[in-house]
C-alpha cells in the first residue's frame, strides 16, 4: 500500500482527527460511486457513504495494515449498501405513477428548468437506462458486476471485499453478465 495512506492512517490512530478528512478525500468518490451504482439513488448513496466512513473511523483500530485499505473500506461500504437494499421497500421506477395522483409519473417530480441539449439528453437517458438495468440484477450479482466493471478490481480483491471465494465471484460475474446481456439486448 502506498506510504501516503499508511502515514494518514497512523496519524488517525494517534488521534489526529483532521487526518481523517485527508483519507476521505482520497476515497470518497470511489465509495460514493460504488454505493450509488448499488442503490441507484443519490440521497441513499450519500447517506450510506457517510455511514461507511463513520464506521471506518470508529473501527480504524481493527484495520490490519498489512492489507489493502481500499479493500477494507469497500467491504464496509458494500455491506452497508447490501443491508440497505434488503431493508428497502420494493423498488419503484420512474415510469410508475406517483401514489395518490392520476397520471403523474416520477419523471415529473424532477425539475426541468433548463432543457438539455440533444446529445446530453441522449447521454443522460443512456446512463439512466444502464443504471436501471444494473438495478434489475439481484444484489449479489450487482455488487460483483459493479466492482469488476466499474471499479476494475481483480477477482481476488472482489472476493476479499465480498468475503467470497474467487470461484463464487466468477460465477456471480458470469450470471450477472449473462443477465445484463439479455436485458440490454432487448
Amino acid at each position: 500500500m502506498d506510504t501516503v495512506v499508511k502515514r494518514i492512517i497512523a496519524n488517525i490512530k494517534k488521534g489526529d482527527q483532521e487526518a481523517f478528512a485527508e483519507l476521505m478525500d482520497l476515497y470518497k468518490d470511489q465509495v460514493y460511486h460504488i454505493v450509488y451504482r448499488m442503490l441507484g439513488n443519490v440521497h441513499e448513496a450519500q447517506d450510506v457513504t457517510q455511514e461507511a466512513f463513520l464506521r471506518a473511523y470508529m473501527n480504524i483500530d481493527t484495520y490490519d495494515e498489512k492489507r489493502k485499505f481500499s479493500t477494507w473500506l469497500f467491504r464496509i461500504a458494500t455491506n452497508l449498501a447490501i443491508d440497505r437494499i434488503r431493508k428497502k421497500k420494493p423498488d419503484f421506477h420512474l415510469e410508475d405513477n406517483v401514489p395518490g395522483t392520476a397520471d403523474l409519473d416520477y419523471h415529473s417530480q424532477f425539475s426541468n428548468e433548463d432543457p438539455l441539449p440533444e446529445d446530453q439528453l441522449l447521454q443522460l437517458e443512456m446512463q439512466e437506462w444502464v443504471q436501471a438495468e444494473i438495478m434489475k440484477l439481484p444484489p449479489k450479482y450487482r455488487a460483483a458486476i459493479i466492482l469488476k466493471y466499474l471499479e476494475d478490481l481483480s477477482l481476488k480483491e472482489i472476493g476479499d471485499i465480498l468475503n467470497l471465494p474467487v470461484a463464487t465471484v466468477k460465477t456471480r460475474i458470469h450470471r450477472g453478465r449473462e443477465a445484463l446481456r439479455k436485458s440490454l439486448g432487448e
Binding site: A21, Q46, M126, Q127, R177, L180
Partner: peptide
C-alpha cells in the same frame, strides 16, 4: 457490447459536503 455499455457509464463524484458532514 454489454461490458462496453456498462463500462461507458460515467463515474460520479461524491457531493462536495460529504467530507464536512462526516467530520
Amino acid at each position: 457490447q454489454t461490458v462496453a455499455i456498462v463500462q461507458s457509464t460515467s463515474h460520479f463524484k461524491a457531493p462536495d459536503d460529504i467530507t464536512q458532514n462526516v467530520m
